[in-house]
């Protein structure tokens, strides 16, 4: 099949010029794209020193991973990843960043020696993991491209204990029971975490002034109004209600 050169040129932006479009496996391309974004962003997380940038890179990495999930046919898990990981978890992270974002702590430099050691050890770990991943021939088989069945409803039914994807999938293995109990356990776990986190993070009434208060009293309170200093010494409540009150 021949293609109009204009079309081919349009696609040149993808860096795959001169390729017969019909031969392109778009799925592979998208995979490479998302995988590259995810891995690069992950490495950027390691490389960055600024906490907020780390958070941004992490979001990018996680979102790209969600894309990978979509590509793998796990739409529900991908959406879940976006919703909870990228949305919830990272909003929490940003909270933490803001609350602790005093200038000295926003960027704590990692030590060079640490980086070198971590690099060596990480390389060894990566090598081990990649070797392990590639060592099984079945995993290296190219994808069969069977259209993945819609997963949301079976997943939801599985979570309430009914497996509607029963035995007929080709070569599908695994127990044929639902996940009602794990689901409930996770629910209770989340509740416990909620309560525990609220308890841990609550402002304690203490007679002895906190170190942060001592720090704040040492430094001039005018620093709060300093335009360039970011939220120094501000607590969550005052941030939310606005410092101008």
């Amino acid at each position: 099949m021949t293609l109009p050169s204009s079309v081919v040129g349009d696609l040149g932006v993808l860096g795959v010029a001169f390729l017969p479009l019909a031969a392109i496996n778009w799925h592979s391309v998208m995979f490479l794209l998302f995988a590259a974004v995810a891995c690069l962003a992950a490495v950027a997380v390691v490389a960055a020193d600024n906490v907020v940038r780390m958070a941004l890179y992490l979001v990018v990495s996680l979102a790209a991973t969600a894309g990978l999930f979509f590509l793998a046919g796990a739409e529900f898990v991908g959406a879940m990843q976006l919703m909870i990981y990228v949305g919830g978890t990272l909003v929490l992270l940003v909270f933490g960043v803001m609350l602790t974002a005093q200038a000295p702590f926003v960027a704590i430099k990692s030590e060079g020696g640490d980086r070198v050691v971590a690099g060596i050890v990480g390389a060894a770990l990566l090598a081990a993991l990649v070797l392990a991943g590639l060592s099984v021939p079945a995993w290296r088989q190219p994808a069969s491209m069977h259209a993945p069945p819609p997963a949301a409803t079976p997943l939801g039914m599985a979570l309430v204990g009914v497996r509607v994807d029963a035995a007929e999938g080709p070569g599908v293995i695994g127990p044929r029971v639902g996940y009602l109990l794990p689901f409930e356990i996770v629910s209770v776990h989340l509740l416990v975490v909620l309560v525990g986190a609220a308890y841990l993070a609550r402002a304690k009434r203490r007679k002895v002034p906190r170190p942060i208060d001592q720090v704040a009293s040492v430094e001039p309170p005018a620093s709060v109004a300093a335009h360039a200093s970011i939220g120094r010494g501000e607590r969550a409540g005052s941030v939310l209600t606005g410092g101008s009150a």
Partner: peptide
């Protein structure tokens, strides 16, 4: 903490090598 993480990773790699 970071040292502990290093220990864990080293142990993991060592286990991998041993298992291999």
């Amino acid at each position: 903490l970071r040292q502990y993480v290093m220990f864990i990773v080293l142990g993991t790699v060592a286990l991998f090598v041993l298992a291999a």
